[in-house]
Design a protein around this nucleic acid. Sequence first.
DNA 1: AATAATTGTAAATAATACTTGACATTTGTA
DNA 2: TACAAATGTCAAGTATTATTTACAATTATT
Lengths: 66, 66
Amino acid sequence: MKNKIRDLRSTKGWTQEDLAKAIGVSRQTINAIEKGKFDPSLPTAFRIANLFEETIEGIFEYREED
Amino acid sequence: MKNKIRDLRSTKGWTQEDLAKAIGVSRQTINAIEKGKFDPSLPTAFRIANLFEETIEGIFEYREED
DNA sequence: AATAATTGTAAATAATACTTGACATTTGTA
DNA sequence: TACAAATGTCAAGTATTATTTACAATTATT
Protein backbone atom coordinates (compact mmCIF):
# COMPACT_ATOMS: atom_id res chain seq x y z
CA MET A 1 0.00 0.00 0.00
CA LYS A 2 1.50 3.28 -1.11
CA ASN A 3 1.49 6.33 1.15
CA LYS A 4 2.60 9.94 1.40
CA ILE A 5 4.23 9.72 4.81
CA ARG A 6 7.73 10.50 3.63
CA ASP A 7 6.61 13.66 1.91
CA LEU A 8 4.53 14.84 4.83
CA ARG A 9 7.33 14.07 7.25
CA SER A 10 10.15 15.77 5.38
CA THR A 11 7.92 18.75 4.68
CA LYS A 12 7.77 19.19 8.42
CA GLY A 13 11.51 18.75 8.63
CA TRP A 14 11.16 15.69 10.80
CA THR A 15 13.38 12.65 10.97
CA GLN A 16 12.00 9.13 11.00
CA GLU A 17 12.87 8.97 14.66
CA ASP A 18 10.99 12.17 15.40
CA LEU A 19 7.87 10.78 13.80
CA ALA A 20 8.36 7.42 15.46
CA LYS A 21 8.48 8.97 18.91
CA ALA A 22 5.50 11.18 18.13
CA ILE A 23 3.25 8.24 17.40
CA GLY A 24 4.82 5.72 19.73
CA VAL A 25 6.49 3.18 17.47
CA SER A 26 10.08 2.38 16.59
CA ARG A 27 12.00 4.27 13.96
CA GLN A 28 12.33 1.12 11.89
CA THR A 29 8.59 0.73 11.86
CA ILE A 30 8.22 4.17 10.33
CA ASN A 31 10.85 3.33 7.77
CA ALA A 32 9.13 0.07 6.84
CA ILE A 33 5.75 1.75 6.52
CA GLU A 34 7.18 4.58 4.44
CA LYS A 35 8.74 2.08 2.08
CA GLY A 36 5.54 0.06 1.87
CA LYS A 37 7.04 -3.06 3.39
CA PHE A 38 3.89 -3.57 5.40
CA ASP A 39 0.74 -1.76 6.42
CA PRO A 40 0.34 -0.12 9.82
CA SER A 41 -2.38 -1.28 12.15
CA LEU A 42 -5.58 0.75 12.02
CA PRO A 43 -4.80 2.57 15.29
CA THR A 44 -1.31 3.44 14.06
CA ALA A 45 -2.75 4.64 10.77
CA PHE A 46 -5.15 6.89 12.68
CA ARG A 47 -2.35 8.32 14.80
CA ILE A 48 -0.29 9.12 11.73
CA ALA A 49 -3.24 10.71 9.96
CA ASN A 50 -4.22 12.74 12.99
CA LEU A 51 -0.67 13.95 13.53
CA PHE A 52 -0.52 15.30 9.99
CA GLU A 53 -4.09 16.57 10.19
CA GLU A 54 -4.99 14.40 7.26
CA THR A 55 -7.42 11.58 6.52
CA ILE A 56 -6.30 8.01 6.20
CA GLU A 57 -7.47 8.01 2.61
CA GLY A 58 -5.45 11.16 2.05
CA ILE A 59 -2.29 9.41 3.15
CA PHE A 60 -2.70 5.75 2.23
CA GLU A 61 -3.61 4.52 -1.22
CA TYR A 62 -5.28 1.15 -1.09
CA ARG A 63 -5.27 -1.05 -4.16
CA GLU A 64 -7.30 -4.22 -4.46
CA GLU A 65 -4.55 -6.51 -5.66
CA ASP A 66 -4.44 -8.82 -2.61
CA MET B 1 -12.84 1.52 18.44
CA LYS B 2 -16.48 2.28 17.71
CA ASN B 3 -17.92 1.98 14.21
CA LYS B 4 -21.08 2.32 12.18
CA ILE B 5 -20.85 -0.99 10.37
CA ARG B 6 -24.00 -2.45 11.84
CA ASP B 7 -26.09 0.50 10.76
CA LEU B 8 -24.65 0.56 7.26
CA ARG B 9 -25.08 -3.16 6.90
CA SER B 10 -28.67 -3.42 8.08
CA THR B 11 -29.59 -0.39 6.02
CA LYS B 12 -28.56 -2.43 3.02
CA GLY B 13 -30.56 -5.36 4.35
CA TRP B 14 -27.48 -7.51 4.58
CA THR B 15 -26.69 -10.22 7.07
CA GLN B 16 -23.34 -10.50 8.82
CA GLU B 17 -22.61 -13.48 6.61
CA ASP B 18 -23.42 -11.50 3.46
CA LEU B 19 -20.98 -8.80 4.47
CA ALA B 20 -18.40 -11.35 5.54
CA LYS B 21 -18.44 -13.03 2.16
CA ALA B 22 -18.39 -9.69 0.36
CA ILE B 23 -15.13 -8.65 1.96
CA GLY B 24 -13.60 -12.08 2.40
CA VAL B 25 -13.63 -12.73 6.14
CA SER B 26 -15.62 -14.99 8.44
CA ARG B 27 -19.00 -14.11 9.89
CA GLN B 28 -17.58 -14.11 13.40
CA THR B 29 -14.97 -11.61 12.35
CA ILE B 30 -17.67 -9.22 11.18
CA ASN B 31 -19.54 -9.74 14.40
CA ALA B 32 -16.44 -9.09 16.46
CA ILE B 33 -15.58 -5.94 14.56
CA GLU B 34 -19.14 -4.64 14.75
CA LYS B 35 -19.11 -5.13 18.49
CA GLY B 36 -15.70 -3.53 18.83
CA LYS B 37 -13.98 -6.63 20.14
CA PHE B 38 -10.96 -5.85 17.98
CA ASP B 39 -9.95 -3.59 15.15
CA PRO B 40 -9.79 -4.74 11.55
CA SER B 41 -6.53 -4.62 9.67
CA LEU B 42 -6.04 -1.57 7.50
CA PRO B 43 -6.77 -3.48 4.27
CA THR B 44 -9.95 -4.92 5.77
CA ALA B 45 -10.98 -1.47 6.95
CA PHE B 46 -10.47 -0.16 3.42
CA ARG B 47 -12.53 -2.97 1.92
CA ILE B 48 -15.37 -2.27 4.31
CA ALA B 49 -15.25 1.45 3.64
CA ASN B 50 -15.09 0.98 -0.12
CA LEU B 51 -17.98 -1.46 -0.09
CA PHE B 52 -20.18 1.07 1.67
CA GLU B 53 -18.79 3.93 -0.40
CA GLU B 54 -17.65 5.63 2.76
CA THR B 55 -14.38 6.84 4.23
CA ILE B 56 -12.62 5.01 7.02
CA GLU B 57 -13.07 8.05 9.24
CA GLY B 58 -16.75 8.03 8.37
CA ILE B 59 -17.10 4.51 9.67
CA PHE B 60 -14.54 4.09 12.42
CA GLU B 61 -14.22 6.41 15.38
CA TYR B 62 -10.72 6.35 16.82
CA ARG B 63 -10.17 7.38 20.41
CA GLU B 64 -6.75 7.93 21.94
CA GLU B 65 -7.26 5.87 25.08
CA ASP B 66 -4.15 3.83 25.87
C1' DA C 1 38.54 12.55 4.98
C1' DA C 2 36.44 11.65 9.27
C1' DT C 3 32.65 11.73 12.21
C1' DA C 4 27.90 12.13 13.09
C1' DA C 5 23.26 11.78 11.66
C1' DT C 6 19.94 9.61 9.06
C1' DT C 7 18.15 5.90 6.58
C1' DG C 8 17.96 0.86 4.93
C1' DT C 9 17.22 -3.96 5.94
C1' DA C 10 17.48 -8.79 7.81
C1' DA C 11 16.07 -11.69 11.32
C1' DA C 12 13.59 -12.60 15.40
C1' DT C 13 9.64 -11.60 18.40
C1' DA C 14 5.20 -10.02 19.80
C1' DA C 15 0.85 -9.01 18.97
C1' DT C 16 -3.37 -9.67 17.18
C1' DA C 17 -6.39 -10.26 13.25
C1' DC C 18 -8.81 -14.00 11.76
C1' DT C 19 -10.63 -18.96 11.54
C1' DT C 20 -13.17 -22.97 12.96
C1' DG C 21 -16.47 -25.07 15.50
C1' DA C 22 -19.79 -25.38 18.66
C1' DC C 23 -23.56 -23.83 21.28
C1' DA C 24 -26.68 -20.27 23.29
C1' DT C 25 -29.64 -16.40 22.63
C1' DT C 26 -32.39 -13.49 20.09
C1' DT C 27 -35.39 -12.15 16.28
C1' DG C 28 -38.31 -13.10 12.60
C1' DT C 29 -41.86 -15.95 10.39
C1' DA C 30 -45.25 -19.72 9.17
C1' DT D 1 -46.42 -21.81 19.40
C1' DA D 2 -43.00 -23.78 16.87
C1' DC D 3 -39.47 -23.48 13.62
C1' DA D 4 -35.95 -21.09 11.13
C1' DA D 5 -32.82 -17.50 10.47
C1' DA D 6 -29.78 -14.36 12.33
C1' DT D 7 -26.83 -12.88 15.92
C1' DG D 8 -23.81 -13.39 20.24
C1' DT D 9 -20.03 -15.51 22.29
C1' DC D 10 -16.40 -18.23 23.77
C1' DA D 11 -12.52 -21.15 23.57
C1' DA D 12 -8.70 -22.46 21.18
C1' DG D 13 -5.88 -22.58 17.60
C1' DT D 14 -3.47 -20.60 13.31
C1' DA D 15 -1.29 -17.61 10.85
C1' DT D 16 -0.50 -13.46 9.33
C1' DT D 17 1.92 -9.45 10.09
C1' DA D 18 2.95 -5.45 12.73
C1' DT D 19 6.74 -4.15 15.46
C1' DT D 20 11.35 -4.54 17.59
C1' DT D 21 16.33 -5.30 17.90
C1' DA D 22 20.67 -5.12 15.91
C1' DC D 23 23.60 -3.99 12.38
C1' DA D 24 24.88 -2.19 7.61
C1' DA D 25 24.82 1.51 4.36
C1' DT D 26 24.12 5.91 3.04
C1' DT D 27 23.95 10.92 3.44
C1' DA D 28 25.16 15.12 5.52
C1' DT D 29 28.39 18.15 8.34
C1' DT D 30 32.76 19.79 10.00
